[in-house]
């Protein structure tokens, strides 16, 4: 057994320790990304090995929360992949219009950029007032940022371009107020968004959704956890409800795949029947 094998044992023990102490279960996450992020941190803080870092993680909550942020931070963007929003606007919204009340679950909302994108889309299509958006993430720090809806002004050019490509009907600047180096999303966009923490590895079903947005979440999970998450999505959707995944994701390996119809292949939009 060489050092790399020992390191893998330490990593396994660390994930077990984090689960036992803090309740976050990373054991079924895709290992390469978790391992790389932990080793980056280890190198930066000059720990000798993972075991030494584990001691710090178990006894220093601030250190752990900081690491947790690094483990769960993935870059979010407003109207990321604009063709998705075009497809939602033209093909999915007309279906959703048939309902008197809409429930939408935004899974793994991170810092909130895609949730606000959805709120804007619903507003422009006249559906926002009858919608309830549930935005969840396992990380409370990220949820807080999402709720604040404050973003770096430097990113706005990209977001505005995305918004226009996504078929936006208004001027994007109508949706935020600009300050020195940041923008704050309008309060009215937040009225029907409920932010709460939810962990796909350990928590249960969210009821009777018409649409679940779960984009670029499954790529971080191994097959087993992907299957669990997709099972949760299936159980949380009402019949005829839609599931929208990330462009590089698929349901084809999940047990529940046979109960979904692939309605827009390129945009990874599925419908429960």
């Amino acid at each position: 057994m060489d050092d790399l094998d020992t390191q893998n044992i330490e990593l396994q023990l660390l994930l077990q320790a984090i689960h036992l102490k803090y309740g976050y279960d990373f054991k079924n996450y895709a290992k390469a990304s978790i391992k790389r992020r932990i080793l980056q941190r280890l190198e930066r803080d000059n720990f000798k090995n993972i075991s030494e870092m584990q001691h710090k993680i178990l006894y220093d909550i601030d250190f752990f929360e900081n690491l947790l942020l690094e483990l769960s931070l993935n870059v979010a963007e407003m109207f990321r992949d604009p063709p998705i929003y075009l497809r939602l606007r033209h093909k999915i919204i007309p279906e959703l219009r048939k309902f008197a009340h809409l429930k939408i679950w935004h899974v793994g909302c991170s810092t909130g950029e895609e949730v606000y994108s959805m709120a804007i889309l619903l507003k422009e299509e006249g559906l926002y007032e009858r919608s309830q958006i549930y935005a969840t993430d396992m990380n409370k720090q990220l949820l807080k940022q999402a709720k604040d809806g404050i973003y770096d002004i430097k990113k706005l050019r990209q977001y505005t371009a995305n918004y226009q490509k996504a078929g936006g009907l208004e001027s994007f600047s109508d949706y935020y107020s600009a300050h020195y180096n940041h923008v704050v999303m309008n309060k009215s966009l937040k009225e029907h968004i409920l932010f709460s923490d939810h962990n796909l590895a350990t928590d249960g079903v969210f009821g009777e959704m018409n649409l679940i947005m779960a984009r670029n979440i499954l790529i971080y999970f191994n097959r087993e956890l992907q299957n669990r998450a997709l099972g949760l999505f299936f159980d949380s959707l009402s019949t005829g409800g839609f599931l929208c995944l990330g462009l590089k994701e698929s349901i084809r390996f999940a047990d529940c795949a046979k109960y979904f119809e692939e309605v827009h292949k390129d945009e990874k939009i599925y419908r429960k029947f």
């Binding site: 895709a30 990304s33 931070l73 993935n74 870059v75 590089k248």
Partner: peptide
């Protein structure tokens, strides 16, 4: 393979 959207 895995894919990820970790920061650049």
């Amino acid at each position: 393979f895995s894919l990820s959207l970790e920061p650049p």
